[in-house]
Design a protein around this nucleic acid. Structure first.
Lengths: 229, 229
DNA sequence: CCAAAAGTGTTCACGGTACACCCATGC
DNA sequence: GCATGGGTGTACCGTGAACACTTTTGG
């Protein structure tokens, strides 16, 4: 089936910047392109928006098709419409960013087809299209947003230690935080539930596990509470 | 000239939420639609993106064509892609918001064709498409952003009094601010230039005029300064 | 018993907030 | 001289920041 329009139309795509929390750095999931343009170059997962799906659905679909990821935290980032951002024709892309728990997904993406891999944000390869610019904006957005919205938890397993939580912020914000002040602040928010459970298989004292209480967070927000790190 | 594509393509539009500062309220500039769908309903200024213009260029062009506004502060807001947001066919819109100085533009929009008018945000008419949702998001964005970026100045004349500046924040944030604390804070940021000039034609003591020093702001930001109200 | 990380309080400085009166000007 | 807004300072409190040692556990 083909379609005819009076005026030329831009093509519409979505692209996703998928962040995972590495040892000492944020990592981004990239796909090696099989086809021209930019064949063999690394690029963000993404693709064309179908006529009968929303932008977010398109992003989720492409993410699953190209990386196997499902049920990730997804948020729209920005739309990019420079005239020549795609050498073939006019393509406008709506960029999203996603946060995933590497604990769940690292293996999958690493062992899957050899065409998907995680890269530290400070050591990204040359990217196709304007994807470097998109990653850059996504990083800035994440660094800003993580400070005033509790989205960082999406990068951690459901149960986590306070040290893991602190390290997550240190990695994203690229600065060290004081352990006692951090704990005082985060526990004072009353958003974490202390579990009757501790770490396993560690070669030292096992830390207590906590989980984030989303229901409680939403209730507090309604009462005017605002999260801040 | 007509164009054919293998797959159906969504149409792409831009829409603008234009904010102006009214007496006691923020106002939004709306256009009365001449054509179906939603003929005769109020809507955001906007229209189709041409194949050879960027998204921002399209927004600026539509703004000028439909409202006569030029050189406004413009920022991308969000892209809306619900399947049925336009009853005719699939249309994805990239929404922008703009801040204008009513002192410059109010007359123009009011006296122009009878198809453009300012409305207080608390008293908007029924809007076409999903434009109510877009305005809502724009308002939230503006209220958040005005607190940590000096964009509010775009709503004021170049020269303004501290009382006008304070009122601008009170109108946007919908709460009163303490006069002495406000002045202490804003003057302490060292972003305002005190002019050798005072208000004219007021029936009481004339207030000193100030202007915002954008060059200085950018320099301070580079040094790690962050604006906050 | 040693290595490794968990866990825990106090002090200080600064910034936010609350608060009220006199002054200058135009009519 | 009166009405209207312009302009100014201080005291208190809460939060953020700096800072070091003891405890627990596994090996």
């Amino acid at each position: 089936m083909s379609h005819t329009y009076e005026y030329a139309r831009a093509a519409l795509t979505v692209d996703c910047v998928v962040f995972g929390l590495g040892e000492d750095e944020l990592e981004v999931l990239l796909i090696r392109r099989a086809l021209e343009p930019f064949a063999n170059r690394w690029a963000l997962p993404g693709g064309f928006v179908h006529i009968d799906e929303t932008l977010e659905d398109a992003a989720l679909r492409e993410l699953e098709e190209e990386t196997g990821l499902r049920k990730v935290y997804l948020e729209q980032l920005y739309s990019f419409g420079a005239i020549d951002r795609d050498p073939r024709e006019r393509v406008v892309t709506v960029a999203y960013y996603a946060l995933v728990k590497l604990s769940d997904h690292k293996v999958r993406a690493a062992t899957d087809a050899s065409d998907a891999a995680w890269f530290a944000v400070s050591d990204l390869p040359d990217l196709a299209f304007d994807h470097a610019q998109i990653v850059d904006m996504a990083l800035n957005r994440l660094r800003a947003k993580v400070r005033y919205q509790p989205i960082g938890f999406e990068l951690l397993a459901k149960k986590f230690t306070l040290t893991q939580l602190q390290r997550m912020y240190e990695v994203i914000l690229e600065r060290t935080l004081d352990k006692r002040n951090f704990r005082k602040k985060i526990l004072g928010m009353d958003l974490l539930v202390e579990l009757d459970e501790v770490q396993k298989d560690v070669a030292h004292r096992a830390a207590r596990l906590y989980k984030f209480d989303d229901r409680r967070y939403r209730k507090l927000v309604k009462q005017g509470f605002s999260f801040e790190i």
